[in-house]
């Protein structure tokens, strides 16, 4: 990213974050045999793909995109994913949670709040094993959640895919140690030092296209457990729940069963940036999966979650 304003060799914060992320992406390509970039069609993974495109320009991405698909996506996300992948001329692999359920390695939760979120871990670990991926690039950020604040850029996983927060390799300067034994693998997080605000500012600065779910629109929702969930085939109103049409947008995009909308009139990037600047809830505050307990993320990560 070129800093057009200063000539005193100062580099603004977005340019520094971009440079760091590109450095990590290139280290991943160089240090691992078979990396993959986890791609969900959400804004963080779109920013990741954009950075990867810049890192290896004018060549194509030296690794495939891997989507762990719960089957509970917003249709807008999948449409966006497919057109973006075509434009990038990237190699997309899709790992279906339904596939794990059919095989019997994952069991569907039941009840009104059933979610396939936890099952993604099973499918992800199976996809890593089948694809023999030794590094999975993810868009996770340390500002998202307390357990993530302690995670490394190069996050080591044992051969069960587990994360051991108390035995992480120290990371100094910009030297990253991706050495591993057979069967072990890494999760790599180039956006570790970014905040939600940085991501939005970067999307604006780089003029990056996003699924329209991120922008304000009218949608039928029910209020459940403090979240506004969009109604669909998968999220049906329960007895006593009222379906309302509200002007909403999504701060994060995940599984439809646990991704809450926020009421908002922000329909441009500038308005979203303004909204993020004054937000009183973290973006994961809209995620029912994190609210299951205070250590929900830490527990899922130890098991091998993203």
């Amino acid at each position: 990213m070129e800093d057009t304003k200063r000539h005193s060799y100062q580099v603004n914060h977005l340019a520094q974050l971009e440079s760091e992320a590109i450095f990590i992406l290139r280290e991943t390509a160089a240090q691992f045999e078979k990396p993959a970039l986890l791609f969900s069609g959400g804004k963080d993974s779109i920013v990741m793909a954009h950075l990867a495109r810049k890192a290896f320009h004018p060549a194509r991405l030296p690794f495939p995109l891997l989507h762990v698909d719960t089957g509970h996506n917003f249709p807008e996300t999948i449409a966006f994913r497919d057109s973006y992948v075509a434009e990038l001329k990237a190699d997309l692999r899709v790992a279906l949670v339904q596939g794990s359920i059919d095989k019997g390695t994952a069991t569907e939760e039941t009840g009104a709040n059933a979610s396939r979120n936890a099952l993604q871990t099973v499918t992800l670990l199976e996809a890593i094993e089948e694809g023999e991926y030794d590094a999975c690039l993810g868009g996770g950020r340390r500002d998202e959640e307390k357990a993530r604040a302690k995670e490394r850029f190069f996050s080591h996983r044992n051969d069960f895919g587990e994360w051991d927060p108390k035995n992480q390799r120290p990371e100094l300067w910009n030297i990253f140690n991706g050495r591993k034994h057979h069967g072990e693998n890494f999760r790599v997080f180039p956006l570790s030092n970014w905040t939600e605000m940085d991501v939005w500012q970067y999307i604006k600065a780089e003029n990056i296209d996003l699924p329209n779910l991120y922008f304000s629109h009218d949608r039928e929702v029910v209020s459940r457990g403090g979240s506004l969930l969009a109604t669909s085939d998968i999220v049906q109103p329960q007895p006593g729940e009222k379906v309302e049409t509200l002007r909403v947008r999504f701060r994060t995009i995940g599984d439809m069963t646990c991704t809450g909308a926020v009421e908002s009139d922000a329909d441009s990037l500038d308005q979203i940036i303004q909204e993020v600047a004054t937000a009183r809830q973290t973006e994961r505050g809209t995620r029912a999966d994190d609210r299951r307990s205070e250590t929900a993320m830490e527990d899922r990560k130890k098991e091998g979650y993203f």
Partner: peptide, 19 residues
């Protein structure tokens, strides 16, 4: 404080990054 043990014991175990 990030990790379960840290909150339980009121200590910090590892380098944590804040923004």
């Amino acid at each position: 404080d990030g990790l379960r043990e840290e909150r339980e014991q009121g200590i910090t175990i590892d380098v944590a990054y804040r923004y």
